[in-house]
């Protein structure tokens, strides 16, 4: 029986080699300057006004995106549960299938819909409504994020909610709980692991994205992801980029650790 343990060996080696060591590398770069001497500068660079501004904006948009995803996904998960297990294929259809059309292309397609002179705008104009374009605004970026990351909220939520025993809900109704009370006292607490995992899976990528803001922000809006990416690609200051990444990473880990307190068994993180 004990031989079974060895099967996890290759995985352990792989993960150490390709996640732990690279993380150490990023720390090494983050705490050194170009000559290789130790410095705090790259890390403390986060408090520079332009970086703080980008971090604050990223936080704001990521928070907004996570909230919108939660409010869109929760009713959907409830509806899917009410419709029965078979509708699980609907989830796959609607949320996995689009990934086969490239993520950048799909995001770029929103340009065609939302841009000045785009399809949606022309339509609204013809209906006599005001001419508008949201491309290059924070709204467009949040929309792009919600569009891309909504599946990562729906899947864990649906996963947890669909497993709630119908008889537990019936028992609550039997004991006198009305629809709202059933939701607040039974469904909501039982779905907490799914909420936690959904928030994690949406907040993390939206906090760090640079491609969506590139595409829909018309290059006017700088998120923290854009700043870090530019340090690596155009500015070629890897030490600074690593330093900022480290701070961002720690920031995310702390906020997620606070959240995961509620998901003790890790129930939510399964597909």
């Amino acid at each position: 029986m004990n031989k079974k343990k060895l099967l996890a060996g290759p995985y352990l080696l792989w993960m150490v080699a390709f996640t732990v060591i690279p993380l150490i590398m990023i720390a090494v770069y983050g705490f050194t300057d170009r000559t290789g001497a130790f410095t705090w500068e790259n890390v403390t660079a986060m408090i520079r006004p332009e970086h703080m501004k980008a971090l604050w904006l990223s936080l704001k948009l990521a928070f907004l995106c996570t909230a919108v995803c939660l409010f869109l996904a929760y009713p959907l998960a409830l509806i899917l549960k009410a419709k029965g297990v078979k509708k699980g294929s609907f989830v796959v259809m609607v949320f996995i299938l689009p990934m086969w059309m490239n993520f950048l292309l799909r995001t770029y397609a929103w340009l065609n819909l939302l841009d000045d002179g785009g399809i949606l705008c022309t339509l609204l104009e013809k209906l006599g409504l005001a001419r508008f374009s949201i491309i290059g605004t924070n709204t467009a970026i949040v929309l792009g994020m919600v569009y891309n990351f909504l599946p990562f909220m729906v899947l864990p939520l649906y996963n947890v909610i669909s497993k709630i025993d119908e008889n537990v809900i019936n028992a609550a109704r039997d004991l006198g709980a009305n629809g709202f009370q059933v939701f607040r006292r039974i469904i909501l607490p039982l779905s907490f692991p799914g909420i936690v995992s959904g928030i994690t899976m949406v907040f993390v990528p939206s906090m760090t994205t640079f491609a969506i803001s590139d595409l829909l922000g018309a290059r006017k809006i700088m998120l923290i992801g854009n700043i870090i990416e530019q340090e690596f690609s155009t500015a070629a200051n890897w030490n600074l980029g690593s330093g900022l990444s480290l701070v961002l990473m720690v920031f995310i880990l702390i906020s997620m650790a606070a959240l995961s307190h509620y998901d003790k068994n890790g129930e939510g993180t399964s597909f």
Binding site: M15, I21, P22, M25, V204, P205, T208, G225, M249, L253
Partner: peptide
């Protein structure tokens, strides 16, 4: 780790390694 560490950090870390 890879799920909590954004793709950005994972990608950068690997590149540096």
């Amino acid at each position: 780790i890879p799920m909590l560490n954004s793709e950005l950090v994972t990608g950068l870390a690997m590149m540096l390694a």
